[in-house]
Each structure stands twice: as C-alpha cells, then as structure tokens.
Design a protein around this nucleic acid. Structure first.
Lengths: 318, 318
DNA sequence: TTGTATGCGTTATCAC
DNA sequence: GTGATAACGCATACAA
C-alpha cells in the first residue's frame, strides 16, 4: 500500500511537499503540485488516517452515550446529533449502555485513550463524580441540568411537571399519578420532587402506588392499566413521560372500557407523531434541536448551558 | 502525558516488557510485571490507542450505513447491531445518509483510509459497482439479496409479497395496492416484481395509482388515505411495508369513516409493538436478530449469506 | 525471559 | 518555496 513517501519518491519531491499538497497548504509551485498529484494517481495513494490521528492527537470522532437506541426519544435525539455531526464533518461513535455503568465507563475510557475527541451523555447511570474525573481528557456534555463545571442542554422537568399538574388540577382532576421510565436519574428526581411538592401544597397524601415506573414503551402501557385495575383507590389522571407509553395506556384502556378522559385523563410527553394520531394531550419537546445543540456544545471550548422549553399541546385526553 | 517509554524508564525495563504486561503476554517475570504496574501507576500512564491503530493497521470500529435512525425499522436493526458489537468488543460508527450517495461514499472512504475495519450497509442508494470497488479495503456486508461476491443477510421480499398477495386473494380481496418507502432499491424492486407477476397471473391490469410511495412514518398514512379518497377506482386491500404507516392509515381511515377491514384490508410489516396494539395483521420480522447476524458476518473472513424468514401474524385488519 | 531496533504514515519544526 | 528530520506512541521481529 502506497504511502506518502512513495509518492514523494515518484514525484521527485520531499514528503513535506506531498503533505502540503494533500492538505492544500499554500507555497507549492503549481508545477510540483501537479507532479505530486500525478504521482498520487500512479502509485494509488491512500491516506492512512490513523497516522494522522496519532500525529495530531485528535480523531474527529464524538462518542454518544445512551441507554437504548430502539426508543423514539433517543432515536429523535440521535437524529439531531447525526445531522449536526455531518455539518461539522465529525463522526459519531455509538455507546448503547442499557443503563449499565460498565458500558458508560467504556466510553469514558476511549475518551481518555484519545480515540474520541468528546463525549455526549444523553442519559447516565453512573455518578457525576466519575464523569467529572474524565473531563480533562476531552469535552463532555450532558443532557440534564448540571452546574457551571460542564456544558449541558436541559429541560426544566420540575417546572414542566408543575405546569402539567397545575393544568390537570385546573381541569378538575384530584387524584393524579404518573408513569416514568426509571425512578433514579436527575430528570426523574426533579419530576418526583415537583410531584411531591405539589401534593404537599394541595394537602394531598403521597401514594407510592400511583407512581408507575419501568414505563418505556408502548407495551408498558398495558401493564400500567393492569396495575391500575388492581388499585383500591384509583387515580383519575396520569402524567406519562412518554407518548408511546401514553398510547399503550389508551389502547389498553380502550380494550377494558376505561374511557379517556372521562375515567382517566392522560398527558404525554415529547409530542411524537403517535400523539397526534391518537389526539393525546402532550408536551412538545424539540428533541432533534436538543441533539443539534448538544453537538454544538461538545465542539465548543467554552462551557455553556441552554434550556430547552416544552410547550403544552392540548388535544383530547384531558 | 506519560507514554510507554516513560513507564519503561521508571520501571527500569524495556518498552517491550512494558508492552508485554500491557497486553498480558506471557514470559514476564512476576517481579518485573509488578515493577511495570507500579510505574504505570506512578507516572499516570494512559495508552494512546491511535498509536495502536497505526501500528496494527486496524481500529476495531465498524461503520453502519443507514438512511434514517429515527425510524423503527432501522432503530431495531441498530439495536441488534449494537448488542452484538458489545459482545465482540467492537465500536459502531454511525453514518446516517438520508439516502444521499455522498454520505455513503464518506463511509466507504473511511474504510479505505483504515479508520474502519468493516462496513455494514443496512440500505443503500449507490450502485453496487461502487461498493464493490471498496471490498479490497475491508469487509463489507449488505442487508439485501446479493450474489456470492459478498456477505449478506436478506429477507426474500419477493416471496413474502407473493405470500401476502395470495393471502389477500384467498380472503376475497380483488383490488390490491401497496405502500412502500421508495420505489428504487433492490428490496422494493423485488416487491414490485412480485406484485406485477401476481397481476399478470391473475389477469388483472397494473395500476400505477395503486402504488403509494414515500411511505415511511405514521404521518404518511394520512396522505395515503387522502390519495385513496381521490381515486375513482379504489383498492380494497393494501400491503403496507411498515407497521407504522399501516397504523397511520388505520387512524386516518377511522377519522373518515373507512372501515377496516370491511372497506379496506391492511397488512403491515415488521410486527412492531404498534401492530399488536392496533391488532394489525402483519409479517413478523426478527430485526434485532438480523442486526446481530449482519454484525457476525462483518467480523467473519469468509463470505456467507443467510436468509431471514418472515411469518404472517394474523390479526384483525384483513 | 528480556532487550534492541525498526516499522507504522503522517504532521510540524526549522533551516535553507 | 522546499526539504531534512524529529516527533507521535506502540507493536513486533529478531537477537541475546
């Protein structure tokens, strides 16, 4: 396989000159430039990019850490990330973690070893302190509310939950529960806090059984409705942190004769196409734009934070 | 930043010995091994993986070429790919092409430059001949029916379409149309051929207006139903190459009082959760397993082909 | 069991 | 404008 030295020999110039024409540097006589170009053609030159990476100390690759790809929320986010990556001629390396800390560490390790120039955490399981230790090896950005030590793009889930709860209250619902993916994670915690604060303010008791976790996909809506049926005292409204779970709930409810919103109100999240299809009241979240913003942040050398706002889309499930 | 040479000096051994303990080679005295380990600790050694890549000529990275991430079909495929990649300690580099040939070429170029050890085409727009030219630079596998010159995992879309058409015929439907993403692409072509062959066999005329393309997502079902309404002579059954489009059709049909399957029968594809939710008759496709198999093939040095079979799941839309 | 020397292919520095 | 040459950091054939 021909390398830069072969080309230099063939063209009768130095490797430096070859490097110059490859990288389109100035100060190369037209005549030599052409000789190099021809030589490259003749010997079938192909640049070995690993040598470039070694020499430069960067790779132009950004790692993306997310728990699942096969989930509309992360797929939309990834879509935005991928589009922005193209704009900047960067490549995306995928780390699907299934929320296992070991997999997250792998990504961090590759950052340390200089295989990655930066890392974007779309969601995480590990402690912030372990991530913090890796910041010196490259830019890391987060998709949740952090502090001034790191760049992040976030949605104020506390405020949105507050808004959603207030909306339901205003509409006359008195027994509100919610569905969520996992209970841990800072976004989930913010929501739980908003929920608890709301209950305290309204003087209502906190009921563990009105929080349904493990809610990620369409199918999980089924089990929520099932659990609902077994409850002595049932909620009359549900905040559902994913439109797909909300859709699953509506489907399962329909099959059991539970009327929505008469028997059970539902508010979804994300405003995915399925929400429009089923006329689900939901919060619109510009996920693709979030992805693009995260990517811009990882390329920037200064830390920044940007809040993404969600807007209520009123439809027919409340 | 400390390198292998610093460690060697600190430990009072050669770089070779350090390299041996790093890579867990045999023939290193326990005593020296410990000295090296301690030295690594002391100087804060971090392996620069780009140097390894350059030296070895491989990177352990596999490129994945697909048109859209934000689509359930490709997300499921990617899910399988990602899981199998982990098993083999390989990394995935994503190329979202939007079916633009330039983006496909970028991926091929990185294979050539040794940034990628292999490439998986989940779908493509460019000609086979351009891909073929890159095979000498690394393993390439395809997700469609090819020939013995390359490894591939495929679904026999001709046969499945045949089966689907036969099934609709048997159920008494006489005016069958279909919805598809793009008309081009070998999978699409196979389906169109099956469709045309079926019509010829049954002595029915081919009607361009019963083929609806540009059908990818939920929302596209809307426009299909709209186009349907404007048709003088309407199909009484539709083969829909994505469950999500089928779901969109059902939703739009419901809003316009079109009864399914009485006025319009629908068969979906993929057997995604939404198909179960809406009781859509569909063909089950093990997408995750397809992804895993593609990944195994890209790691293997010998060419192979494996057929993935789809099975009809009878529900309530036919 | 260990070390020396060389190769991997490019970029960057500096002298001319 | 151009060219030697020194990094970049590791793996490995070969020698000992």
């Amino acid at each position: 396989m021909a390398n830069i030295r072969d080309v230099a020999k063939k063209a009768g110039v130095s490797v430096t000159t070859v490097s110059r024409v490859i990288n389109e540097h100035p100060y190369v006589k037209q005549e030599k430039r052409l000789a190099v170009l021809m030589a490259m053609e003749e010997v079938g030159y192909v640049k070995n990019i690993n040598a470039v990476h070694l020499s430069k100390g960067t790779t132009g690759m950004i790692g993306i850490v997310l728990p699942f790809i096969d989930h509309p929320y992360f797929a939309s986010l990834l879509n935005g990330l991928a589009h922005e990556a193209r704009v900047h001629q960067k490549k995306l390396v995928l780390f699907q973690t299934d929320y296992e800390i070991d997999h997250e560490l792998e990504a961090l390790e590759l950052l340390r070893q200089k295989q990655l120039d930066g890392l974007i955490f779309c969601s995480r399981q590990c402690n912030w302190s372990v991530i913090e230790a890796y910041q010196s090896y490259g830019t890391i950005v987060m998709c949740e509310k952090m502090d001034e030590r790191i760049s992040y793009t976030f949605v104020d889930h506390y405020r949105i939950f507050q808004e959603a709860l207030g909306y339901l209250k205003k509409k006359g619902y008195e027994r509100i529960g919610y569905c969520i993916g996992r209970r841990s994670g800072s976004n989930s915690l913010a929501r739980e806090t908003a929920y608890r604060d709301f209950l305290v303010e309204k003087g209502q008791p906190f009921r563990e059984e009105w929080i349904f976790d493990g809610c990620y996909d369409l199918e999980d809506g089924d089990s929520v409705v099932q659990q609902l049926q077994d409850l002595e005292k049932k909620p009359d409204a549900l905040l559902v942190t994913s439109d797909h779970v909300a859709a699953g709930i509506m489907s399962a409810a329909g099959k059991r004769g539970i009327r929505i919103p008469e028997d059970l109100a539902v508010i979804g999240f994300d405003n995915h196409p399925i929400a429009r299809m089923l006329s689900i009241t939901t919060f619109d979240l510009p996920l693709e734009e979030m992805g693009r913003n995260l990517f811009r942040q990882v390329l920037s050398s200064d830390v920044s934070s940007t809040e993404i706002s969600a807007t209520l889309v009123e439809r027919k499930t409340v």
